[in-house]
Measured scan of single mutants.
Amino acid sequence: KELVLVLYDYQEKSPREVTVKKGDILTLLNSTNKDWWKVEVDDRQGFIPAAYLKKL
Rank of each mutant, 00 (worst) to 15 (best):
K21P: 01
E2G: 12
N33K: 07
V4N: 00
L3E: 07
R16E: 14
D43F: 09
W36C: 08
V6R: 00
K55F: 07
L28Q: 00
I25W: 04
I25N: 02
K21E: 06
D35M: 14
K34G: 13
K22D: 02
G23T: 01
K13E: 09
V6S: 02
W37T: 02
V39W: 01
V18H: 03
D42Y: 14
W36K: 03
E40H: 08
D43V: 09
K54Q: 15
N30A: 10
L26D: 00
E2S: 12
T19E: 02
D9R: 03
L53E: 01
K22L: 05
Y8C: 09
T27D: 06
E17C: 05
W37I: 02
D35R: 14
N33R: 12
Y8R: 13
V18W: 07
L28D: 01
L26V: 13
K38A: 13
K21V: 10
R16T: 14
A51R: 15
L5Q: 10
D9C: 06
Y10M: 01
K1Y: 15
V39P: 00
E40Y: 06
T19R: 05
P15C: 08
T19P: 02
E17V: 03
T27K: 11
Y52N: 10
K21A: 09
D35I: 14
A51N: 12
V41L: 11
Y10K: 01
K1H: 11
Q45L: 07
E17M: 04
T32P: 04
Y10H: 04
G23R: 02
G46M: 09
Q45N: 10
Y52Q: 04
K34S: 12
K38P: 01
L56N: 03
K1E: 09
G46R: 05
T27G: 08
Y10A: 00
D42N: 15
E2D: 12
N33H: 12
D24S: 13
D24W: 15
K34R: 10
K34Y: 08
N30R: 07
V39G: 00
Q45E: 13
L5I: 13
E17P: 06
S31P: 05
R44G: 06
K38Q: 11
N33Q: 10
L56P: 02
L7P: 00
R16F: 14
V4K: 00
D24H: 08
E12C: 10
V4I: 05
P49S: 03
K34C: 09
V4R: 01
I25E: 03
K55T: 08
V20W: 04
P15R: 06
P49L: 05
Q11K: 15
P15Y: 09
N30H: 07
N30T: 10
A51S: 15
D43Q: 12
K34W: 08
E17W: 04
D35E: 14
E2F: 11
L53C: 12
D24I: 06
L53A: 11
A51W: 12
L5N: 02
L28Y: 01
K13F: 06
L53Y: 01
G23Q: 02
L3A: 06
Q45P: 06
K55L: 14
G46F: 11
E40R: 10
V41G: 07
V4E: 00
F47Q: 04
V41R: 11
Q45I: 14
L3N: 06
V20K: 00
D42L: 14
E17D: 05
T19I: 03
S31G: 11
Y8G: 07
A50V: 08
G46H: 07
D35G: 10
S14R: 10
K55I: 12
N30P: 04
P15N: 11
P49I: 02
V41H: 09
W37Y: 05
K54P: 01
Y10D: 01
Q11R: 12
I48C: 10
T19N: 05
S14V: 05
T19C: 05
E2L: 11
G23Y: 05
L53T: 06
L56Q: 06
D24N: 09
E40L: 13
E12Y: 06
P15M: 08
L7C: 06
D24A: 12
R44V: 08
